[in-house]
Design a protein around this nucleic acid. Sequence first.
DNA 1: GTCTATATATCGATAGAC
DNA 2: GTCTATCGATATATAGAC
Lengths: 234, 234
Amino acid sequence: MKAPRSRGRVSTGSPPADGGDSRLQRDSYHHGNLRAALIADAIEVISERGAGGYSLAEASRRLGVAVSAPYAHFADRAELLAAVCVHALEIFRDELEPRLARSAAPADRLATTARGYVQFAASHKELFQLLFSAEFGALDKARHPEIAAAERPIEEAFLDSVKALTPTGDRVMAEAVAAAVEAIAHGHAMLLLDGRFGTGSRAAGRAATSAARATLALLDGSDRFLSPRRTRKS
Amino acid sequence: MKAPRSRGRVSTGSPPADGGDSRLQRDSYHHGNLRAALIADAIEVISERGAGGYSLAEASRRLGVAVSAPYAHFADRAELLAAVCVHALEIFRDELEPRLARSAAPADRLATTARGYVQFAASHKELFQLLFSAEFGALDKARHPEIAAAERPIEEAFLDSVKALTPTGDRVMAEAVAAAVEAIAHGHAMLLLDGRFGTGSRAAGRAATSAARATLALLDGSDRFLSPRRTRKS
DNA sequence: GTCTATATATCGATAGAC
DNA sequence: GTCTATCGATATATAGAC
């Protein structure tokens, strides 16, 4: 009744040659690095085929372990995906924070943060798409509070700079500006990955620069942003 | 693309005699509206569980038809998903275009477009998320040129207003501004759906207003956006 | 911590009747 | 245009050996 599942031919054409492949030695996964290997593999696959295209069974085959092996490290599929999500957010945070130290002026810090946000999306397309895919956004964050906790540092990278920019402003205004700047960065990142800024090697730079300039333009007219009734050329 | 399809129990028990679903009678699908019903159902399900969570077999069960019935209307699963994508884009376009006629001044038109973009995301959360999910963005658009064609009107809604705003400007600058405004709108829409603007009934309004104001702020400093070297207060 | 083997279930797609 | 029936493949998850 059970057919030989020898070669994993997937209908939409995934590379089948993974039955007993070469690079990864099966023995390696007996020393306790299977968990890390699963996460790394999941990031790679999900970036290409989406979270829906990832399966534990296929991953086990790729890594040369039994389909039951992952269950020694994760309770179920959802828990592995949550771990992947947290791992991606930590990488994001680690790439964004060092940039903040390099810029002194608050406005420049904010523009640099926006630029870094877009550049992370460009250099880690896979991770970025993963973090904002439908499956992760809705399904996991609700059940796994550790994901929300891992997201906070990214939001605070924006908010802290805004607070430094307008120390006198109230909290509501600061959060409004921070959200707007984050939206600018996020929008540029998404449209970049969508090809809206072109496809060449310059696309990432164009998008990042546009995000940084749009941020500065917003700050430039931030009084207008916050109080649009006030006449402009007063 | 094999999906997770383990979403616990779904409507496996949904009987053919249509016990649970009230609106749609099984007989209706014998008159030729199965195609439309499949698309409507797919939009509903994909919005909740992602494209990976959608299956033809399950949809057939939900609609009370045989699993083979959809193949009379779509060659395969991918073709149905492409049709869903095109349908969503047409709704998006139809909601965005009427707004343009209502605003005369180019700057206001652009801000209104950005606002409408965000409001569409709010009122049609499902469709919007669907259009920018990983599966649709990468998998379908490449193979189905009709999707790219359906996307153009949305991009042109921004570009046309920018051109009206700066009739003297060259094409490159106009496209740069249009892309930035579209990024602002898109970023606000995404962050709104992510809960970044709060979760209450006011969240959509906040996000839409922020997008419109950010757009005006960008245009306000558009000379600075396009030529950042020029001193600001000249 | 990993393996073998298996239970249970769903999927996409097709063939052929009506 | 839809149905019945089915094939072949894949999935998640568990039990028990080592």
